[in-house]
Simulated assay, not measured.
Amino acid sequence: MRVDLFDFHLPQERIALRPARPRDAARMLVVRGNSAFADHHARDLPQLLKAGDVLVFNNTKVIPAQLEGYRGQARIGATLHKRLGPRSWQAFIKNGKRLSADDVITFGGDVSAIAQQRHDDGSWTLHFNGDEPVEILLERAGRMPLPPYIAAKRGTDAQDREDYQTMFAREEGAVAAPTAALHFTPDLLAALEEAGIGHETLTLHVGAGTFLPVKADNTQDHAMHSEFGRIDSETAARLNAVREAGGRIIAVGTTVLRLLESAADQDGKIQPFADDTAIFITPGYTFRAIDGLMTNFHLPKSTLFMLVSALMGLERMQAAYAYAIENEYRFYSYGDASLLLPD
């Protein structure tokens, strides 16, 4: 499909720079099949879902993956993208033309790394020096990797360490938050459980590639970034049992949806999974593993807007986004949510 079909105009003032407080006070647009759009809040979820349904969350934890340093006198910016080994990460580099193989980049806090290899997409493999775990080095020298559409408008601060992390964050390795889950609080989770709505967690380490623009003119020419995901056998079995009992699987976030769809077989059974996935979902895709999606509002011409258009239909999502803009919903990572329930 033509990428320009997924374009729309978004006023800059609709981009949220801080999250709603409390988190579950965020607005939520409910899109059900061809029914009228309905304005709600995240805290209304217990009344919008059914007993027996299960919400699935991503328990990845965002690491302070953005680094600033120097190679000699040249200033170098690095955003870690994907772990390649105990001390090696693939990173997008700002001012990467100033780098050569075996150059040493010195970051703050006595942290340094060797630029080992340049990849075809312009990223580099960085090998961190020393014996301390890389996670400790990043805590000392790194900062939270806010999305570029927020970072371009304000600096990262101490509050982002808390704001840009979900209540489910356990497994370190993400360089972007699974932002749909930012709307959840312990009180909301308790209300869901009281309503008979369960929850499960899985892990997909979100990479910085999620923010890369689609530069191709046609979706078939876009190379999707890969990310590591894991679903254990016990979780897969419980999710399959939900559907067998007539319940629905509601993915909280596109990362969860992509991992579940990657793990599902042709019959829709979710299998244990521990591998990279580069699944690219566009209109025409047949969903096998999920029955609904809670997600934030995404960028024009992004792979994520293509994904929600595949779930609900392009014209339907164009209308939903036009409604959201007109009614002053807040967009992107710190913005409001949508609950998408196809017929």
Rank of each mutant, 00 (worst) to 15 (best):
246 G>T: 14
207 G>A: 02
327 N>M: 09
273 F>T: 01
19 P>K: 02
252 V>Y: 09
174 A>E: 03
229 G>N: 05
142 G>W: 05
256 V>W: 01
197 I>W: 07
301 K>R: 15
243 R>S: 02
290 I>T: 14
263 A>E: 04
39 D>K: 12
258 R>Y: 03
292 G>Y: 03
159 Q>G: 13
22 P>C: 10
197 I>Y: 02
313 G>P: 08
98 R>A: 12
31 V>C: 10
25 A>I: 03
250 I>P: 07
22 P>W: 07
318 Q>E: 12
235 T>P: 09
296 N>D: 09
15 I>E: 05
201 T>P: 06
9 H>R: 15
279 I>D: 04
37 F>W: 05
10 L>N: 01
329 Y>D: 04
157 D>S: 12
179 T>D: 03
155 G>P: 12
70 Y>L: 14
280 F>A: 00
94 K>T: 09
150 I>G: 05
339 L>Y: 08
104 V>T: 15
191 A>N: 14
279 I>M: 03
170 R>D: 08
263 A>W: 02
115 A>V: 09
144 M>K: 11
143 R>T: 13
137 L>W: 01
323 Y>D: 10
45 L>G: 08
223 A>E: 15
194 E>V: 13
26 A>S: 14
13 E>F: 03
116 Q>M: 10
150 I>C: 06
2 R>I: 08
187 D>F: 04
121 D>P: 08
116 Q>S: 10
268 G>L: 09
212 L>K: 13
100 S>C: 13
280 F>P: 01
